[in-house]
């Protein structure tokens, strides 16, 4: 399912003395099946954009096309439920939204709100729990008895069980330990590659954006600063630092190596693995 934003504008507390602009003139395209990363600082408007993707916020100007629905300023949209089923959002620290007595009931909450029968929902819960790498017996436990990392996985399972076409992820690994972080990120890429899920990742981590995304949107002060493929974006590091973003460690390392070498490598490497292989190849060529 494609999502297109056209000149979207939003202001907080519109019409009061506390009014302040959130995003202005935001346009970009999330093509079906792609992995899109939205990067930018806190306050750059990332999370405001994110909340437009399933109409938790409505644009004050401009319009958003979500599949066959068009959300425009000032127009009532009746099929919000349909949109929200198809665009699932994993919010930052999603474990804060858990509330049911058992993990199973909590995971079923989403699907059943969208009209899935209880038995089907239970099957989905089982499937989702396996997907996020938790043992089945967790289903009958209280979510509040689990560790922080496990709660995070349960919350993610709750969104996956809705079987969305588009999965929007807001810093899904914040606060997790390194190995857990990798597991979860790999699971999302797996879903995107094998099930054709569209992924939108909102993140501070340049490393994650470089590693996983097909396309990157940089937000700065409420507007789109740049759009491009990771190799495009990270080739021009000056443009990144001009909006206060870090250069991914791999790219930074490649640059200081290139300085010694006196010429650029064949391509901008996006992961340490890629860079190590590239340098290895170069050594083979030289000797």
């Amino acid at each position: 399912m494609d999502i297109k934003l056209r000149e979207v504008e939003y202001r907080y507390a519109a019409g009061t003395p506390f009014e302040r602009p959130a995003i202005t003139d935001v346009s970009f395209h999330i093509p079906s099946g792609q992995y899109v990363a939205i990067i930018g600082h806190t306050g750059s408007g990332k999370s405001t954009v994110l909340q437009h993707l399933n109409v938790l916020l409505k644009p004050l100007k401009g319009e958003i096309e979500i599949g066959s629905h068009t959300i425009a300023a000032g127009r009532k949209e009746k099929n919000l439920k349909e949109i929200r089923r198809r665009v699932g959002i994993v919010f930052q620290f999603p474990e804060h939204q858990l509330f049911e007595e058992t993990v199973e009931k909590d995971i079923c909450f989403g699907p059943m709100n969208f009209g899935v029968a209880e038995n089907d929902a239970k099957n989905r819960a089982l499937e989702a729990v396996r997907l996020v790498g938790l043992p089945e017996d967790v289903l009958k436990k209280s979510p509040f008895d689990l560790s922080g990392g496990q709660m995070r996985r349960v919350a993610i399972a709750g969104v996956l069980a809705m079987k969305p076409d588009v999965l929007v992820l807001d810093e899904p690994t914040a606060g997790l330990d390194p190995s857990g972080r990798q597991d979860i990120m790999n699971m999302f890429t797996g879903l995107q590659k094998t099930n054709g899920l569209t992924c939108v990742l909102v993140t501070h981590s340049m490393e994650d954006a470089a590693r996983y995304a097909d396309k990157i949107v940089i937000m700065y002060k409420g507007s789109v600063h740049r759009i491009g493929t990771p190799r495009d974006i990270f080739r021009d590091t000056d443009s990144l630092t001009s909006v206060g973003l870090n250069v991914p460690e791999t790219v930074r390392f490649q640059q200081s190596f290139e300085k010694r070498l006196g010429r650029p490598l064949d391509k901008v490497c996006l992961t340490p693995e890629e860079l190590a292989a590239e340098i290895g190849k170069l050594r083979g060529e030289i000797s």
């Binding site: 390392f253 340490p272 860079l275 190590a276 292989a277 340098i279 290895g280």
Partner: peptide
């Protein structure tokens, strides 16, 4: 990176 470079020979 040191690990990966060593692995790459």
């Amino acid at each position: 990176m040191s690990q990966l470079l060593t692995d790459a020979g």
